[in-house]
Structures are given as C-alpha cells and as structure tokens.
Amino acid sequence: MRDQDQGRPPRLRPAPRLMLRESVYEALKRLLMDNALEPGARLSIDGLARELQVSQTPVREALFRCEAEGLVVRRPNAGYLVAPLLGRDALLDLYDLRLLLEPTAAARAATNATDRDRRDIDDAVRAMAPAVHGDSYQAYREFAEEDAKLHGTIASAGGNPLIADTLDRLRAHVHTYRLYFRHGIAEVTTSEHEAISDRIRAHDAAGAEQAMRAHLENSRTRLLTAYDQD
C-alpha cells in the first residue's frame, strides 16, 4: 500500500449480489416503461429469469419493487400482471396530487436550489431539444426520460426529500402512459419547462410555483385528449 493510502478506510464497492439485483430491476422496469410488455399481460417469474439469465430470486425482488411503484399488480392465483394503463379518473387523481406537490417543490427550488442545482435544471431542459422534433418512438422515449429527470431534479433541489420521493414514485405512472400514447407534445412542453427554469434561476418562488402549476394543468389537458380520441 502506498504511503498516501495508509490510514484511509477501504473503498466500498457494491457487492455482486446488489449489482445483480439492481440490474435486473432496471431491466424489468425498462421493459415496463417502454411498454414492451402489454398492459394486463401475465408475468412469469420463471420466464423472466430465463430471459434475463438469472435466478428467480432477483426477479421476485424486482417485481416486488415494481409493484410498489405501480408498474405491476399482484392478483390471487394469477401472480404478477403488467399494471393496466391509468383510466381517465385515475389520471385526474394523479394530477390532483402532482398539483398539490410540484408547484410547492418548484417554489422551494427557487429559494433553496444551489448553483449546481440550477445548472442541472438548465442542462435537463437543454437535453430535451434534440428529441423535440423527432417523430420516432426512440426520440419520444428519450424526451420522456429527460422530462422525468428535470422534474426529479426540481423536486430534489427543493430540499424536501419526502416530496421528492413521492414524486419519483408517481412519475412511472405518467411516463408509462405518455410513452404508450405518444402525442406530439414535446415542443410545447419544452417552452413550459423553460419558463419554470427561468423562474427558478431568478430566485422567483411565486413565479416558479405559477409556472409549474400552469405546466401541469396544460399537461393534464394534453394527456386527456388520448381518452377523447378513443
């Protein structure tokens, strides 16, 4: 051991089992978020384990975590099923909750965000630009991922971990829905995100709260068009 390393605690590395659990969870979550598995489809633990080339244990653990996030449901005598898409009423309930939390999170971010937080928020808005004019599924998926990152960064910058954790759990519902219907909403959404970012950068709590509220109300209206077209 080199002299400069003497007396330092050893670096901690994730145990192989922990790395495996996380990789299986992320792989399953991506399948669900990308709608590679149809809503309502039955999930075979044995089949998923074979496909992912792992034992059944990490698959069970991943399904348990996905159930907590609302991506899968467990039914008596049926096992795990891919969660159905949100119905109209459930979507409205979801946005009611987001409207209670996210405007407050944006206002707190305008007050509490560090310079690094503000840069991260601006970077997330800019990262959406390449996907705005794309009409492919991949382009929209990339946009949705950046959208989730932006909202998560704003919530974390607000300094209330309970709000950030709650919103993180809710976001899977919204983006599964949006990836499934994929309406052309990216360009207008970006301008709304820029308005939120501008107010946070200006330390304008009231303006950030108002911009976030307007964005969520507009987002809710756009997503409801999917039901109107059924």
Rank of each mutant, 00 (worst) to 15 (best):
R141N: 01
A186Y: 00
F143L: 10
A157M: 13
A109L: 15
L92A: 14
V174I: 11
H151Q: 04
E146D: 03
A106S: 15
D89S: 11
M128T: 05
G134R: 06
L92M: 14
V188M: 01
E146M: 05
R169A: 11
L179I: 06
Y140D: 14
Y137G: 04
T166A: 14
E192G: 10
D168R: 08
A127Q: 12
V174K: 06
L91G: 07
I196G: 09
T153K: 13
T166D: 04
R118P: 11
M128F: 01
L167T: 02
V188H: 02
D147A: 01
A110G: 05
S136D: 06
D123Y: 04
A109P: 13
S156F: 08
M128Y: 00
Y177D: 05
R88L: 12
D122I: 01
A164M: 07
L170D: 02
R182N: 03
R108Q: 15
L179V: 08
A186C: 00
D147T: 00
D122G: 01
P161M: 15
P103A: 14
P103N: 14
H183W: 04
F181N: 05
Y180P: 07
T111S: 09
A124Q: 10
V125E: 00
F143V: 08
A172H: 04
R126Q: 07
E145A: 10
D89L: 08
H173I: 03
H183R: 09
K149M: 10
A172R: 03
R119A: 07
A155K: 03
T104S: 10
D115Y: 07
D115N: 11
A105C: 10
A148M: 03
D89G: 08
L97S: 07
V174R: 10
H175W: 04
I154T: 04
E142N: 10
T190A: 00
A113G: 11
D93P: 02
I163D: 10
L179M: 12
I163M: 14
D147P: 00
F181M: 02
E146V: 02
Y177Q: 06
T153R: 15
L97K: 05
L100I: 06
